[in-house]
Design a protein around this nucleic acid. Structure first.
Length: 259
DNA sequence: ATGACAGGCGGGGCCTGA
């Protein structure tokens, strides 16, 4: 079973790109972030035509996440618990039955945290809320995949020029500590479990020729519970869509599990 | 040092992103 995550930076602007890639790679489950539309504006039929069940948690203009699954959803839960005031659409959880039992997929679009100080505080608070949710889910002792745009550069080898990023919200020590605390619950970074080479990126800025110069970041991740990590076969970044016309600034990353 | 790209919204430029 292949589980993919991809920040597509606007589903309406990227529908052809998304369907082309899905037809080519045919992941069983895909987590999309930054759909940037309300639920009713999501192009559900375009994905249903490819054989996907669709779950959407959107909002007007910004953010928004969607889950696509070839197998039907047993459960879908939108929104991250822990802050009733938080209206940003950044979290969508789905459960799917598989031959070996179930797999739970958590699709996240973690806040960027740059800009005003309160944005960084929101990011760290969101990471704390995510940690609490993951802690609860791990108690089920089932295959769990927490996938998405983390907006976290885990280590210096995950950015082209770490010294230039020291004060950035994606790489600040507090951010990395919160990410490490998540891993310390017992999660495995699927890509790093399969690859130890530096400078493997999932994001290249549109600006300043970042793609051409390979000035990238590794900020999109699939984190696995022990029961999922035991079944991990492979994890690959597919950078090819970054070279297409009108690309997203992120590329898909796919984990294959024997579920 | 600054700005550079891009999408959404809405119909001109501003906001947000990483």
């Amino acid at each position: 079973m292949k589980i993919a995550t991809w920040n597509i930076n606007g589903v309406k602007a990227r529908i052809d790109t998304a369907t082309t890639w899905l037809k080519s790679e045919s992941p069983d489950i895909a987590c999309l972030q930054e759909i940037k539309c309300m639920d009713e504006a999501f192009p559900t039929h375009a994905f249903e035509d490819l054989g996907y069940n669709v779950a959407v948690h959107g909002q007007k203009g910004f953010n928004g996440v969607a889950l696509l699954s070839k197998l039907p959803f047993d459960e879908v839960t939108p929104g991250l618990a822990g802050d009733a005031e938080d209206v940003q659409a950044r979290y969508l959880e789905g459960v799917v039955s598989v031959p070996s039992g179930v797999v739970r997929v958590v699709n996240i679009y973690l806040p960027n945290g740059n800009g005003a100080p309160e944005k960084f505080a929101y990011k760290l608070a969101w990471m704390n809320r995510l940690k609490e949710r993951v802690k609860a889910l791990l108690a089920f002792e089932e295959p769990l995949v927490v996938a998405g745009d983390y907006n976290v550069i885990p280590a210096p080898e995950d950015v082209y020029n770490p010294s230039a990023w020291m004060d950035d919200a994606l790489f600040r020590p507090e951010t990395r500590a919160h990410f490490q605390a998540l891993l310390n619950l017992g999660l495995t970074d699927a890509f790093r479990a399969c690859h130890d080479e530096p400078h493997r990126f999932t994001f290249w800025d549109y600006q300043a020729g970042a793609w051409q110069k390979n000035h990238g970041l590794r900020i999109d991740h699939l984190l696995l519970s022990p029961q999922a990590a035991d079944r991990l076969i492979a994890c690959e970044i597919d950078a090819t869509p970054r070279s297409w016309e009108k690309p997203s600034d992120h590329v898909p990353i796919v984990a294959e599990l024997s579920l």
